[in-house]
């Protein structure tokens, strides 16, 4: 009797387990989305279809402000993080291996490993001192904080792309009279662009979603969308929160889909 090679999908109960897992993962999200269309004020009792919670959220000045703030922070922070990450990725892949390279990786990826709450408290204290000294209260603190923890997320896809890129292309460019800047501009950058775009998108989504660090670092009146929603939870929960969540979910799905399209292997 021919023995078939081992395959997880042939184990008994595989389909059952898979279905249970998917239901557990997506049922809460599905419920959230469905109740965002509830006409009543409850997030648990269904009273009929309506879009008025979307209208409420759309007309809510606090939501508008928080959304604008979230988008500004995410845009600035992901731009900053992507720039830093691109330079770091070039520095760690486009030159001979150097002593302490592993240490550099650890430093860059530090925000992935240090508990977020620790970073949050540390930033709170640091920015407290800076605020005292300068008197500046603006969004720059949040942007810097977000850029810091978004950098490793932007770094990973960019580095992955660079590692898959043949170094001989840059050698060939240098051979064909391109100076280092021209080589970067005409060869490295165009080939790296999908990686950079993917990194930027990932950083954007991560920034958009952050609660813990934002909650600690923000000054009064600097609520982002997630911290605004958290604040709402403490009072009355209405389907308005569901509506905002659903909109945020939609945006994230679009960005992550683009991310996967960009990082997908050719052929």
């Amino acid at each position: 009797m021919a023995e078939r090679s081992f395959e997880v999908s042939r184990l008994p109960g595989f389909a059952t387990v898979a279905i249970v897992v998917f239901v557990l993962l997506y049922l809460p999200i599905l419920t959230l989305v469905v109740f965002s269309f509830n006409s009543g004020p409850s997030v648990a009792v269904w009273e009929g279809w309506s879009l008025h919670w979307y209208a409420d959220a759309w007309n809510n000045e606090a939501v508008k402000g928080a959304t604008a703030r979230s988008l500004i922070i995410a845009t600035c922070a992901s731009a900053l993080a992507t720039t830093v990450a691109t330079m770091a990725a070039l520095g760690t892949t486009r030159r001979a291996a150097f002593g302490g390279q592993t240490f550099i990786y650890v430093v860059i990826n530090q925000p992935l490993m240090v508990p977020e709450i620790v970073t949050a408290v540390a930033l709170l204290i640091l920015f407290g001192v800076v605020k005292q000294a300068t008197g500046y209260q603006g969004l720059a603190y949040l942007i810097l904080a977000h850029a810091a923890f978004c950098t490793p997320f932007a770094y990973l896809p960019i580095r992955a792309r660079l590692e898959g890129m043949d170094l001989s292309l840059e050698t060939a460019a240098a051979d064909l009279y391109a100076n280092p800047w021209q080589t970067f501009r005409h060869v490295t950058l165009p080939l790296l662009a999908p990686g950079i775009a993917a990194g930027a998108m990932l950083a954007f989504v991560i920034s958009l979603d952050d609660v813990v660090i934002t909650e600690f670092v923000k000054s009064a009146g600097q609520d982002t969308l997630p911290t605004y929603m958290l604040g709402q939870m403490r009072r009355a929960i209405t389907p308005e929160v569901n509506a905002i969540s659903t909109a945020l979910l939609g945006l994230t799905v679009v960005l992550l889909t683009l991310f996967f399209i960009l990082t997908r292997k050719k052929n």
Binding site: D166, S168, L169, T171, A172, D175, V187
Partner: peptide, 10 residues
């Protein structure tokens, strides 16, 4: 100018 073994075309 060099013709590379791997061609290294852009």
């Amino acid at each position: 100018n060099t013709v590379f073994q791997s061609y290294a075309l852009f």
